[in-house]
Structures are given as C-alpha cells and as structure tokens.
C-alpha cells in the first residue's frame, strides 16, 4: 500500500545510511584507468547491473519475502546465502558494514519485527541486500520493489562516485543511468522468478573483475571511499 513511497526512500542516495561513502568498485576502477570517461562508465555500470546488481536484487527480494514472516534462523540462512555469493573478503566487509548501517537507520524509520529479528540474528551486520530486503518488508514493499531498489542502488552509487572522482558532467551520467531502465527491469524480473524456500537457486553471477578491484582497493594507500 505504502510500498511505492518506501521504495523511493530506500533507493534515494540521501537515505542517511552510510551509502555515500561506497563507490561499488568505481574508485579503484578510476585509479587503474578502467574508467576514464562516460563510455567506460556506461560499460562498467551495465556489467555491474548484470552481475552484482542481479544477485543483490534477488537477495533483497528473498529477504523482503522473509520479512513478512521473519525468523532468526531463517535470517542467518539467507545471510549465509549472501555470504556464499560474495567471493571477495573486501566486498563482504563492505557489504556487512553497509548492512549494519542500513539496519541501524531503518529500524528508527520503520520499527518492525522484521528488522529487530534480523538485527538479533546477525548482530555484527547482515549483508547489505538482506538488510535492504528486510527494511523494504518493514516499510511495506513487495519483493519486486525491494529488488528494484537494490538493483538501482547497485548502479547509482558507482555513477555518483565517478562524477565526484572524475568531474564528469552529471547530466550526462544521469542520461547513462536513464538508458539502463530496460536492463534494470530485466534485473528485477530475473531476481523475482525464484521460488520461495529455494534460496540455493538464487542467482550467483560472478564478477571477477569487481572482486579484484575490491581487493586492490583495500590495499591502495589513498582512498576516498570505503569500497
């Protein structure tokens, strides 16, 4: 009922949940010369959406469904599914940090059993998509809305970071994001075809280049972003 508004709030980069400090690999990609301008950025975003974006969206959708009838043991299992799908330790850390901050923030916005039980089940911080799905459930979203918000933020964070790091024309970058609309719908669709209780068959697309960027980023001396 209130799902549309909640989805917009959750997808807004101004949601005060620590997201502004994460570049989704864009900072390291800029440093090593993999992103130098709008064309590279467009390819980076498309690739990220088709891999990490789909996985994130599927986990968020599953978490949103679970949030309707939460149980601590089930949260731990879904969180383990997320863990298994993020192969870079640096990305796992970044994901848990963002998840912890998202739960901290959204528990105050949408007090709920879904978020309380997730916080109790994974006290050091659930993975970000799991937290996002739980928050979406708490806010009254459907799984598809959770998936859309997750897929959307998986590309807006690196796009914004690239604007800051390279001084790209922000209007042009927003056009790139607008061009991703069909791909975003596809990602959300792919994320939602999974049947409940069959988490092992959730998408598990690998993105080795993103994994390597995340690991390199952690070892780079001068960093503006956490990830």
């Amino acid at each position: 009922m209130h799902g549309d508004m909640a989805m917009l709030l959750l997808a807004d980069s101004r949601l005060p949940a620590g997201g502004h400090a994460h570049s989704g690999g864009a900072e390291e990609a800029v440093r090593v010369g993999a992103i130098t301008g709008p064309e590279d950025l467009a390819r980076f975003l498309r690739g990220r959406l088709a891999t990490a974006g789909v996985v994130t969206a599927a986990l968020a959708a599953a978490a949103c469904e679970l949030g309707a009838d939460p149980a601590q043991e089930r949260w731990r299992r879904l969180d383990a599914e997320a863990d298994a799908r993020i192969s870079s330790p640096a990305q796992r850390d970044a994901s848990r940090t963002q998840g912890r901050l998202l739960v901290r923030t959204t528990r105050r916005i949408w007090p709920s059993e879904a978020l309380d039980s997730l916080a109790a089940a994974v006290p050091d911080g659930a993975h970000h998509p799991v937290a996002l799905g739980a928050a979406a459930a708490a806010a009254g979203c459907e799984p598809r809305q959770a998936a859309l918000a997750a897929a959307y933020t998986s590309v807006t964070a690196p796009a914004t970071a690239a604007v800051r790091l390279l001084g790209l024309d922000p209007v042009l970058v927003h056009r790139l994001l607008a061009d991703l609309a069909p791909a975003l719908n596809d990602a959300a669709h792919e994320a939602c075809v999974i049947q409940a209780d069959d988490w092992s068959s959730l998408p598990a697309h690998a993105a080795p280049a993103l994994d390597l960027l995340a690991e390199q980023h952690l070892r780079t001396e001068v960093r503006l972003f956490v990830s």
Partner: peptide
C-alpha cells in the same frame, strides 16, 4: 576512523550513520 567518500560534511551532517556506528 570513518571514511567519507569525498564528502566530509555529509558524514557529519546529512548522513551520520557511520559516525554514530
């Protein structure tokens, strides 16, 4: 130490989650 993603003022004013944490 908290990292601020190019925006030191954001981390202390608009999005204080990482600092509160």
């Amino acid at each position: 130490a908290v990292q601020t993603g190019c925006c030191p003022h954001t981390a202390i004013r608009d999005d204080i989650a990482a600092n509160l944490d």
